[in-house]
Nucleic acid binder design. Structure first.
Length: 651
DNA sequence: CCGTCGTTGAACTT
DNA sequence: AAGTTCAACGACGG
């Protein structure tokens, strides 16, 4: 900190025109309205708050600041790019080791990128609640402008609104620009009369009337110096009151223990913490963060015109050891790469491919563009719908009487952490087995173990495990699965994750609940040898291909030969796939018939389960009997999964 | 009200 | 390998 202070006194005053190449697509600059006090007004102290954009290229918010400055103010006096570890956020989301690691690598990398442009610069890392931090920084660093990329996520909106109010009170200007998505979700919702976009087609028809997606914004060529950056640590300090709240009380009293200081270690203030400093063991993932790595992967993808042009998500293999997709999602999630660079990069490549007579070009929705549009569609749904990440109070989420749903007190407040459901011991057991990767279904177990180990699984593998947990077999609330993905996925996204869980559980977006992924037949479509299972469930690695997805059907002699006894070295399946599937479908049918969404009065009252139980009893008993009869018939005929596989093999 | 369509199923037929 | 049927929902456009 001392170093940068002494250097900042000899600050070269960089004209802003040299900071960035002119960009014709960017908004016109505002006119000056402060001619009288020009000299004073012309000097501005700026914080750029990085949240969803850990890169230096294609930053619309930075571009807006610099363009605006060109005419209005001329010079940035001091400039601090910051990152803020927000304990509220970290408590809300149980961020797992691999995502932590990816984040730390990404902010580290961004800090180095700043240093490359200005050796006095870095990413200034702070630890604490953003509102409190800004209250302090605005005063101590004499901040006049705060810049950030707009975030329409529910939590971010509340957090940012508080800071916008504070800034208004203190006369600080906030410059915020959308940039995280192809289109600003709030604008799309406005164009859709306040309603969420519930189908891709709907999203497309609305955005087709809006102006085209921005071209990528250029990177700055240089970065101004920071100012004197001394900040007293906040342990014992009283930060005063705001709205009657003692601002620093949580830290002083030790209630807020997420980070023990505002600026980090005293010998290296504002530094990026290491996993070790945070008390974490090393991450297990082989996927590494950073804008350099992100652009390397983007370039690699774009260098293969055939792959880009014929990309088809539904036909990519979830079973392969090497990812069959781009693996760009974590870099998009953390903003290590710009979404406009990916979009226009692909457009350019596909156009060239088409001109050169390339064959087999794919179209939306399964192609690359469709995938990015789906991401936007979920963001637009999330931004428009309160309680998007839960069932209760969610207006688009079909109510289904899942086991292990969120629990609420009499006032409708969620009880956290969720108490174990003693009455539903079977569901708790199924959930634990699913999470641990010990269901006895190798395909599910391999996916769940890969998810925990790598922080990433193929999109279709996510479908498979999500379908199994919810509408397929286990009949467990998607809220539970969503939480596990929140903890383990590196590329976790606040809109896509709940959105996809609702999709896969047929709670919203998708309704064909009778289409259930087979636990044996489905992975066999893309890999009969089970290489993913052999890697992540090594106890099964010696089984012949025939039994790799259904080892419990192997005769004991083969189990012995394969050095793995089912029920001893690997679990026997926790449930009967076909029977549970039929039960689930019949129950889903009842819920669809009732047709209550999460915001229905009977759901809020807690009366809905009684109603559904009645339906299950009236219709369900016959369904149940039917299912059991079917099961008996299957057994009599010997139509297990293995028999089907053998039949197919003979062909 | 009806017909069509919907990113990614499974089993069967040709 | 590609097409059909199964059983059947909701959004959307007419």
């Amino acid at each position: 900190m001392k170093k940068s202070n002494s250097k900042s006194t000899k600050k070269p005053e960089i004209p802003l025109t040299s900071l960035i190449k002119p960009d014709l697509t960017s908004p016109k600059s505002l006119k000056s309205n402060s001619i009288g006090k020009e000299k004073e007004e012309n000097k501005i102290n700026v914080i750029y708050w990085h949240r969803t954009d850990l890169r230096l290229k294609d930053l619309p918010a930075l571009n807006k600041l610099l363009n605006k400055n060109e005419n209005e103010i001329k010079k940035i006096n001091n400039f601090w790019p910051i990152w803020c570890f927000d304990p509220n956020y970290l408590y809300k989301h149980r961020v797992g080791l691999n995502r932590w690691n990816f984040l730390l690598e990404s902010i580290n990398n961004l800090s180095l990128e700043y240093k490359k442009l200005n050796k006095n610069q870095k990413l200034w890392v702070l630890r604490g609640k953003p509102f409190l931090i800004f209250k302090k920084l605005i005063k101590d660093w004499k901040i006049t402008h705060i810049v950030w990329e707009k975030d329409s996520n529910a939590y971010s909106k509340i957090r940012d609104e508080k800071i916008i109010t504070l800034a208004k009170e203190l006369g600080v200007e906030i410059i915020t620009t959308p940039g995280r998505h192809l289109y600003d979700p709030d604008e799309v919702i406005k164009a859709n009369k306040g309603k969420p976009t519930m189908t891709l087609h709907q999203w497309q028809s609305i955005t087709s009337k809006m102006k085209d997606i921005d071209k990528p914004f250029p990177a700055p060529e240089s970065i101004p110096d920071p100012g004197p950056s001394d900040l007293k640590d906040h342990h014992e300090e009283n930060w005063g009151e705001y709205e009657g709240i003692d601002l620093n009380a949580d830290v002083r009293t030790g209630k807020d223990t997420c980070f023990d200081s505002l600026t980090g270690p005293s010998d290296d203030p504002f530094s990026v913490p290491t996993m070790e400093q945070l008390g974490f063991p090393p991450a297990t993932t082989t996927i590494h963060g950073g804008t350099i790595e992100g652009y390397r992967r983007l370039k690699l993808f774009l260098s293969d015109p055939e792959k880009v042009s014929t990309f088809s998500k539904p036909h990519s293999a979830p079973t392969s050891l090497e990812p069959s997709t781009t693996l760009l999602s974590p870099y998009i999630k953390f903003g290590c790469i710009g979404i406009r660079e990916l979009w226009w990069g692909c457009k350019e490549v596909v156009e060239k491919w088409r001109k050169n007579g390339g064959k087999g070009e794919t179209k939306e929705p399964e192609n690359m563009f469709g995938q990015l549009q789906f991401r936007d569609m979920y963001a637009c749904a999330e931004a428009a719908i309160p309680n998007f990440e839960r069932i209760r109070g969610n207006s688009i989420c079909k109510y289904i009487d899942w086991s292990l749903q969120n629990q609420y007190d009499k006032n409708g407040n969620e009880i956290l952490p969720r108490p174990k459901d003693e009455k539903d011991e079977q569901a708790e057991k199924r959930f634990e087995a699913w999470k641990k990767g010990e269901t006895g279904f190798p395909w599910i177990d391999a996916c769940m173990r890969q998810l925990k180990y790598e922080g990433w699984i193929h999109h279709l593998a996510r479908h498979s495990v999500a379908c199994f947990l919810t509408r397929g077999q286990c009949y467990i609330s998607w809220e539970r699965g969503m939480e596990v993905f929140d903890e383990w996925l590196i590329d976790w996204d606040p809109a896509s994750n709940p959105g996809n869980w609702m999709w896969l559980s047929a709670s919203a977006f998708y309704s064909q609940y009778f289409r259930v992924y087979g636990l044996v037949s489905w992975p066999q479509k893309t890999d009969k040898t089970g290489e993913l299972v052999r890697k992540y469930c090594p106890e099964l690695k010696d089984f012949p291909d025939k039994y790799i997805y259904c080892p419990h059907l192997a005769p004991l002699t083969i189990q012995e030969k394969s050095n793995c006894i089912i029920g001893k070295n690997y679990p026997f399946p926790i449930l009967n796939e076909q029977l549970e599937k039929e039960l689930c479908i019949s129950k889903l049918k009842d819920s669809y018939k009732l047709n209550f969404n999460g915001n229905h009065l009977e759901v809020l009252n807690g009366n809905v389960n009684k109603k559904l139980k009645e339906l299950h009893e009236n219709n369900g008993n016959t369904h149940f009997k039917k299912s059991e009869e079917n099961e008996k018939k299957r057994k009599a005929k010997g139509e297990g999964a293995l028999d089907k596989f053998i039949k197919r093999e003979k062909k």
